[in-house]
């Protein structure tokens, strides 16, 4: 069970957002996709989860063609996407946001046990389960967004900038949580981040995007010690 992306091209109108992107994510591994603003990171995830149509190329997950069918189908094949900027619905309660993640699942007792797992991971969410999501802090919302994704019983987690807008201490906590979740549930993860160093530190491998093209890829440790990557993306 691997995510295989091969020569993927995605356009916004006439403009190429993703050009000939190729990478693989082995099962249970975490791949960080880093790059500056506008590098096409979010577009890549949106194409993989079925929110955005691709122009050409291949993307497969468990022999399932990701470029065919749409988001509501992909989630049934174990793909959960936490989209950019606090992927929760503020008008619903905390528990309703979680239930939303499991709404397509037929087996309700399994869904209940997923909820217990999420509450065990993020006890704060259980304390606030009846509260309106609008009352949560930024960090709590990000926990909820990840919790909602876990409620869909994913095998592949697509995370878009989970650190966006969070204080440094919270960023550290969120990254630890992501790393633990990946190990605990054996999940494959594609983690899109501008916060390149933090992302690479918990990743097995990394892909560096610039203007929609892969400019560097390899083991996370190799990328961290690569002088060119350090200068351009890690800030020293």
């Amino acid at each position: 069970m691997t995510l295989i992306v091969n020569n993927l091209n995605v356009h916004h109108g006439a403009i190429a957002a993703i050009s000939d992107v190729t990478f693989t994510v082995p099962q249970g591994e975490l791949t960080a996709v880093i790059g500056s603003n506008g590098a096409g990171k979010s577009t890549l995830l949106r194409a993989l989860s079925g929110l955005k149509g691709a122009t050409s190329g291949n993307a497969t997950w468990k022999e399932h063609n990701l470029l065919k069918g749409s988001a509501e189908i992909h989630v049934r094949h174990g793909i959960s996407h936490v989209s950019e900027g606090m992927s929760v619905i503020p008008e619903l309660t905390v528990e309703e946001n979680l239930d939303l993640g499991a709404i397509w699942r037929r087996n309700k007792s399994e869904a209940q046990s997923s909820k217990r797992e999420v509450f065990a991971l993020f006890p704060r969410l259980e304390e606030r389960r009846k509260q309106s999501t609008a009352t949560l802090s930024g960090g709590e919302r990000q926990m909820l967004a990840i919790g909602r994704a876990l409620m869909s019983k994913p095998e592949l987690l697509l995370l878009d900038e989970p650190s966006l807008g969070l204080a440094p201490l919270l960023v550290k906590q969120i990254f630890e949580a992501i790393s633990n979740i990946s190990k605990q549930f054996g999940l494959s993860v594609v983690l899109v981040e501008q916060n390149a160093m933090s992302a690479l530190q918990i990743a097995h491998s990394g892909v560096v995007l610039n203007l929609g093209r892969v400019v560097a890829a390899g083991k996370a440790q190799e990328l961290i010690s690569d002088p060119a990557v350090r200068a351009a993306y890690l800030g020293y």
């Binding site: 929110l51 509501e72 996407h81 989209s83 619905i89 397509w104």
Partner: peptide, 11 residues
């Protein structure tokens, strides 16, 4: 409230 999130949740 959010058609996109609804789709991501499988609706």
């Amino acid at each position: 409230f959010s058609p996109e999130l609804a789709r991501l949740a499988g609706i």
